[in-house]
């Protein structure tokens, strides 16, 4: 049972008939995700991989009882798509779409907050509950079921790290790709309490990135947590004032440097990895220590 979704979570895909939407619908079905419907205005009656397409989210939800939606629509329609999902009664929204204007996101955040809906993304790879379900575009083949929880601001770097864990025999519980934009629905600070409460997760990996202060904000909460945390910050060598692909990955006005994030994490007890291949080693150590203290308590 994952912190956000499990094998029984019913999922719809907004923008299912597009190139990305249809490709990833298939990939999700292969992994075992219960994709029960798609939404593309004007395409009702069509189907993708045998999954029916509806005109609106409302229709899709009333026909399928879906509670989650994965959004693949073009950036200029993302704001409407997210608002439609909220109106349609969806409780978990994953916006994969990249390039959503910041002002659209500010509006959307207000909407999801006022309706108590969880939004992940935009510009994110989605989430996976290892061995159960995946919502988004993370390749299913890299996962192994286990007790390591991950939350990341990056996409492909996360795949690299999950792959390294799997090769080292360290399975995962939930992997949440939070997205690389300046304004995102769910940040480290929102996801950490879920991992802390999750009985399956024993150790947590946070993959941060230069830009913003999400890592520093999370540090305050981390101090209160009981589970060990391994951290990695990407973009340590990126220069100031240059935007590194992700709209959020820019060091501006002295804010968002890797040093400040590493320092904040170290001070709150996070084991910070220098390189990605150090991560599995740190996880093993943390697990060993955790098990040891458990035995002592016995």
């Amino acid at each position: 049972m994952g912190i956000l979704a499990d094998r029984d979570t019913k999922v719809i895909v907004q923008g299912m008939t597009g190139r990305e939407g249809s490709f990833h619908t298939e990939q999700m079905l292969v992994y075992g995700t219960k994709v029960v419907g798609g939404v593309t205005p004007g395409k009702k009656g069509e189907s993708v991989c045998g999954v029916p397409v509806f005109n609106t989210v409302k229709e899709a939800v009333s026909e399928t009882q879906a509670t989650a939606s994965v959004i693949f629509v073009p950036a200029r329609f993302a704001k409407e798509a997210i608002c439609e999902a909220v109106e349609g009664g969806i409780k978990l929204i994953l916006c994969i779409t990249e390039g959503v204007p910041v002002q659209d996101m500010i509006y959307v955040i207000h909407v999801v907050k006022s309706k108590g809906v969880r939004l992940i993304g935009p510009n994110c790879p989605g989430i996976a509950t290892a061995g159960e379900t995946k919502l988004g575009i993370i390749p299913g083949s890299i996962f192994l079921r286990g007790n390591v929880g991950l939350a990341s601001r990056s996409g492909t770097l996360t795949y690299e790290i999950v792959n390294g864990l799997t090769q080292a025999g360290l399975g995962q519980s939930t992997c949440a790709g939070l997205g690389g934009d300046p304004i995102i629905g769910t940040q480290f600070i929102d996801i950490l309490p879920l991992f802390e409460r999750d009985p399956q997760t024993e150790v947590i990996i946070l993959i941060g990135e230069i830009g913003g202060t999400a890592e520093e904000e999370a540090a305050f909460y981390i101090k209160k947590m009981s589970k060990p945390i391994i951290g990695f910050i990407s973009g340590r060598t990126a220069p100031r004032g240059k935007r590194m692909g992700h709209a959020g990955a820019i060091i501006s006005g002295g804010q968002g440097t890797a040093e400040s994030k590493v320092k904040a994490w170290q001070e709150s007890g996070v084991f910070v990895a220098e390189t990605t291949n150090e991560i599995p080693l740190l996880v093993k150590e943390a697990l060993k220590k955790a098990n040891h203290s458990k035995e002592v308590r016995k």
Binding site: S154, G155, L157, E160, G180, I210, S234, G235, R236, A249
Partner: peptide, 10 residues
């Protein structure tokens, strides 16, 4: 992917 590129730079 931007994250992987940054990771590679690092």
């Amino acid at each position: 992917g931007a994250g992987l590129v940054m990771g590679t730079m690092d």
